[in-house]
């Protein structure tokens, strides 16, 4: 999947809209009674199953999509969820408080299994990957449009930077060099590096707001607030 696409996975319409970063509380996760939840799942209670699904399905979907792509994603999420539930019912989870780590272990094993299966299939068959890639593109037209719109704005911001600042961003985003390597090779401090990135993002945000005001168009910079 080309880097310009990123691994953009379709978000189900049923998912509630997300708070933006600034409004996310710094304290993670509402307190969950892990032992109660695990006991409910073990007993096959609907309330427990529902809470487990609500807690993990989006994260599992995101993780699987990022690692494996959007093909047959819902089936994979469903299979992974079943594996977690069955493992809990078998008593494989000895400490309910470790449920989150346990889910992570199951998900990573699933990813490894799917990759192994894909590699094995590829060796047995002729190369069909190009067809899969084409299908991926068709699944994210909205996200493609969003990226294009943002990229056009981003170009205005990036053009206004010095060549050195642009080079830093090229190294980080295109060449995927680490912050440490960039700072070492370009004689930057960590603070200078972060400042550059946050300045570029701030300019980008400001430009986006100006464009929104001048066009009077609802753009990707304003998130839907319904339901919050």
């Amino acid at each position: 999947m080309p880097a310009s696409q990123a691994k953009l996975c379709p978000v189900p319409a049923s998912e509630s809209s997300q708070p933006n970063q600034e409004t996310v509380s710094r304290t993670a996760h509402a307190p969950v009674e892990w032992s109660v939840l695990v006991a409910q799942v073990k007993a096959g209670e609907d309330a427990g199953m529902e809470q487990l699904y609500k807690l993990f399905s989006r994260g599992i979907r995101y993780y699987l999509c990022r690692q494996l792509g959007p093909q047959e994603l819902e089936d994979k999420v469903h299979d992974t969820f079943l594996i977690v539930v069955n493992a809990i019912r078998r008593g494989d989870l000895r400490e309910p408080e470790r449920l989150m780590g346990f889910v992570r272990t199951v998900v990573r094993r699933q990813v490894a299994a799917y990759i192994e299966q894909a590699v094995h299939s590829r060796r047995e068959q002729t190369d069909l990957e190009s067809g899969v890639t084409v299908a991926d593109r068709k699944e994210n037209p909205e996200q493609e449009a969003m990226i294009r719109q943002k990229a056009d704005l981003m170009k205005s911001v990036l053009s206004s930077l010095s060549e050195r600042d642009r080079d830093i961003l090229v190294r980080f985003y295109l060449k995927e060099q680490t912050q440490e390597q960039i700072c070492r090779e370009m004689a930057l401090t960590e603070t200078q590096f972060r400042l550059l990135k946050s300045r570029a993002k701030a300019k980008f945000g400001e430009l986006g707001r100006k464009k929104l005001a001048s066009n009077g168009i609802f753009s990707v910079f304003v998130r839907a607030q319904a339901g919050r």
């Binding site: 880097a3 996200q143 990226i147 990229a151 981003m154």
Partner: peptide, 10 residues
């Protein structure tokens, strides 16, 4: 999306 857009722009 932001990273993808940055890459396209760069």
């Amino acid at each position: 999306v932001q990273i993808a857009a940055t890459r396209v722009a760069l």
